[in-house]
Design a protein around this nucleic acid. Structure first.
Length: 821
DNA sequence: CTCTCCCT
């Protein structure tokens, strides 16, 4: 076997590995960071008999990692990259006829195997850092296994991983052996600082940083979930850290290249650094001099929501594997220390590994690649985790809408052209169709600022971002301009059409996100039915229509991140075939009336409308009925008599049972279409509805055979001994109430009842001045009992009224005693 | 808890 100058932990297992791969085509190698697998394994395998003049392909998840691996291997051989060891990444390749090991990024490999499924001239594919479980790595492995199953039984596949549970992937590889290696790292002491849920994470992190700067030597690397937290911690630290020998450097993806380099470079002699980073610093890059890691334990991850076809960000607890990876950054060059912002006991509750990308990503690109491979259902390929069905369904629907797939899910000619463009399918379609009218370059520049975060600044207005991008002289902008030029060339036709706005072009990619201004400034409604908002002072906030490309946040607080204005005539030109003309009748709660309109509608958006007369249909009547009752039964024009009638019926329902109709608020709301709507045909609103109409509608609920019983058993009035007809109050909680001056009841020896004698009236006995004296359900008992005391009390107060000793024999009266008696 | 990371 090939000899190396220095020894690495991986050397101990290299013999096992080569022996295994001679015997069977697939193997899994589990080796922690520092083992040396990336640089040693490909060089050792190169001398194996089964390679025989063929090539090895090594997959790396990032360009940075690919370049570093190629560099290190070439240096081991005393060569430059591009000789025995080559490199193939999106921007630029270094390959020659001498090249035997190609180091490629995972995305490049997916493209290679799709273009050449038999992988001609390739002896083995080595998947490095497979534990990161990127979509491209999962897809690449699935396709390679498929190729191995049919076209290339001799192809060798080696999956290398730092923290994977090896058994699962070995199963996927047909029960291949798992070879394990030791790693090499310096010890890192772990301190658990805990987390106070009542304080902001930013402040607790800042506290931990100041504490670490006092207690430890060396530079500090802080892991935070995102840009917002990084900026807030930075502000806190600039206030608190007064030592001029300490530099604070943020580090995240959208940052300018120069600032990133500043953060990654070692601290200057005699100085210390505090690097505030996202998970960008978790793998691959090493910052010299870091011996303290502070881990917030949080990460921001994308979550695709199939229902709305949108990717949203979520802040989550990191996995145990990621937390260990973060801690390991403190022990790269010397022993270190890691402060964790959670309780030690909480570590066990963390997920073991991060969610593989395939489980939460937008699967449209994957589905298109599968279709290009000839597979309409990705579940038929060997994925370690099956692509989830809802996301597959959404991806298929989108690709069919873009005409990239046919009804059976097979790739179309348009689909092939889309796949040739290295863009997400929506943006690819925009560039292709714009190309048909000679605007490929405008569309490509738009796609560029959408694909590359931070390019052209972060103003919402995409036209402005494109202008800035075109003037930008940075390396990144130059690279992207060259790429955009390539996309445009692939899509261009000789046609020279009318020039359209950025907004119009964007509807080619995001037809479902056309938005119309709502009442309040900055608030919009999108065609997909969801709301989105701009800052009210944003220049775009005055626009009546926006073509939105990106939004953030949950359903309640979606914010517009990237958009361009679009004119009504462009909406007609670009989306005209999907605009529907409809007659709509809606209930206006404010006016308590129906409004009928002829509406031209695109999805959830009403583009324009004109008022119509309310149609005299049953459907309109139903809408009015349910609309009016939804505002409350009390709001209907009840006469006093009708209100009492309703209470009487309800009283009998309670007293006698459900043969009596239910007239409660809930029941009337629920059945409005039956009792109310038939009376509302031809009516437009509350002003057309009088007490008589309501009475007729409600009284129709009472069957005719019950109407006579109603009068008999729940009379509107009760006749007392004086002959007075006193109204009964059926609305009272305590039961039907008869409020009557006590003198009018003289002579009555039985308690008054209703409901065929079953229900006693609640008697409110009143003084001559209509003040309440007593409440009783037993009048004879009252005469016998309390009357004497009442009489004694009242006689003084009302001397002119009769207070006889025996009320049963006294004549009832409405008046005071006749003068002189 | 107001946009993570990477790639064709």
């Amino acid at each position: 076997m090939r000899a190396f100058d220095s020894s690495l932990p991986i050397d101990a297992v290299l013999a096992d590995l080569t022996e295994s791969l001679r015997a069977r085509p697939n193997a899994v190698l589990v080796a922690p960071p520092g083992a040396g697998k990336t640089t040693r394994v490909p060089l050792v395998l190169l001398d194996e008999p089964w390679v025989q003049g063929k090539k090895l392909i090594l997959l790396e998840p990032r360009r940075l990692a690919a370049r570093a691996a190629a560099d290190r291997m070439a240096r081991t051989l005393g060569e430059a990259v591009g000789e025995t060891v080559g490199l193939r990444v999106r921007l630029g390749s270094k390959i020659s006829c001498k090249t035997r090991i190609e180091v490629v990024t995972e995305g490049v490999f997916a493209r290679m195997i799709l273009d050449d499924p038999s992988l001609e001239g390739v002896a083995a594919v080595l998947f490095d850092e497979f534990h990161e479980r990127s979509l491209d790595a999962d897809l690449g492995l699935a396709l390679a296994l498929d190729a191995q199953g049919g076209l290339r039984e001799d192809l060798r596949l080696l999956v290398m991983s730092a923290t994977l549970d090896g058994a699962r992937v070995a199963g996927l590889l047909g029960g291949s052996p798992v070879i394990e290696s030791e790693g090499r790292a310096y010890p890192v002491e772990t301190l658990y600082l805990g987390r106070d849920p009542n304080r902001r994470i930013d402040e607790q992190v800042a506290d931990a940083v100041t504490r670490a700067l006092r207690a430890e030597t060396g530079s500090v690397l802080v892991f935070l979930p995102g840009q917002g937290e990084i900026r807030r911690v930075e502000t806190l630290l600039r206030e608190r850290v007064t030592d001029p020998a300490i530099d604070i450097a943020p580090l995240y993806g959208a940052l300018e290249r120069g600032e990133q380099d500043l953060a990654v470079s070692p601290a200057k002699p005699g100085r210390r650094k505090v690097v505030l980073a996202t998970s960008i610093a978790e793998t691959s890059l090493t910052i010299e001099g870091v011996r303290v890691v502070i881990d917030s334990g949080l990460a921001r991850v994308p979550v695709f929501e199939p229902d709305i076809g949108l990717t949203r960000l979520e802040t989550v607890r990191v996995s145990r594997a990621a937390a260990d990876q973060r801690r390991g950054r403190a022990g790269r060059t010397e022993p270190g220390v890691c402060y964790r912002l959670w309780e030690e006991a909480a570590t066990g509750a963390l997920e073991a590994f991060a969610r593989p990308e395939v489980l939460s990503a937008d699967l449209a690109p994957l589905l298109l690649d599968c279709a290009a491979w000839g597979v309409t259902d990705p579940a038929s390929l060997a994925f370690l985790d099956k692509p989830p069905k809802p996301a597959v369904k959404e991806a298929r629907a989108l690709l069919q809408q873009l005409q990239a797939l046919d009804d059976e899910g097979r790739i179309t000619e348009t689909g092939r052209r889309l796949r040739d463009l290295p863009l997400p399918p929506r943006l690819g379609r925009m560039v292709l169709i714009a190309g048909e009218s000679g605007q490929a370059r405008d569309a490509a520049d738009l796609a560029a600022v959408l694909v590359e975060r931070g390019l052209g600044g972060d103003v919402v207005d995409l036209s402005e971002r494109v202008e800035r991008f075109r003037r930008d002289r940075s390396k990144r902008a130059e690279d992207m301009r060259r790429m955009a030029e390539g996309w445009a060339k692939a899509a261009a036709s000789s046609a020279n059409g009318e020039k359209h706005s950025s907004g119009a072009l964007l509807t080619l990619a995001y037809p479902d996100r056309l938005a119309k201004a709502r009442g309040k400034p900055g608030e919009y409604l999108m065609a997909n039915g969801r709301g989105a908002a701009l800052e009210p002072h944003d220049r775009l906030a005055k626009e009546p229509y926006l073509a939105i490309a990106e939004i953030s946040g949950g359903a309640a607080s979606a914010r517009v991140l990237a958009a361009a204005p679009i004119a009504p005539d462009e909406i007609e030109a670009f989306l005209g075939d999907k605009i529907e003309q409809r007659q709509e009748v809606t209930f206006d709660r404010q006016a308590r009336a129906l409004r009928a309109r002829a509406v031209r509608r695109y999805g959830a958006i009403a583009l324009n409308e004109r008022p119509l007369r309310v149609p005299e249909t049953e459907e309109a009547a139903r809408a009015l009925a349910t609309g009016l009752v939804s505002l409350g039964i009390d709001g209907l024009p009840f006469s006093k008599a009708l209100a009492q009638w309703r209470e009487r019926v309800m009283f009998l329902r309670k007293a006698e049972g459900e043969e009596w109709p239910d007239l409660s608020d809930e029941a009337l709301v629920a059945t409005a279409e039956e009792w109310f709507a038939p009376h509302l045909v031809g009516k437009a609103g509350i002003n057309d509805i009088g007490a008589d109409l309501l009475s007729e509608a409600l009284r129709s609920l009472l069957p005719w055979n019950l109407q006579r019983r109603l009068d008999a058993e729940a009379p509107t009035h009760f006749e007392v001994p004086t002959g007075s007809e006193i109204p009964v109050d059926y609305g009272s909680e305590e039961g039907p109430v008869l409020a009557v001056r006590v003198q009018e009841l003289f002579g009555l020896d039985k308690h008054p009842t209703i409901a065929a004698g079953r229900v006693p009236l609640v008697l409110h006995l009143l003084s001559p001045a209509h003040r309440p004296i007593q409440i009783t359900r037993d009048l004879p008992g009252f005469w016998r009992g309390s009357w004497a005391a009442v009489r004694a009390d009242m006689r003084g107060q009302y001397p002119k009224h009769p207070w006889p000793e025996d009320p049963l024999t006294a004549p009832p009266t409405r008046r005071a005693k006749p003068r002189g008696t």
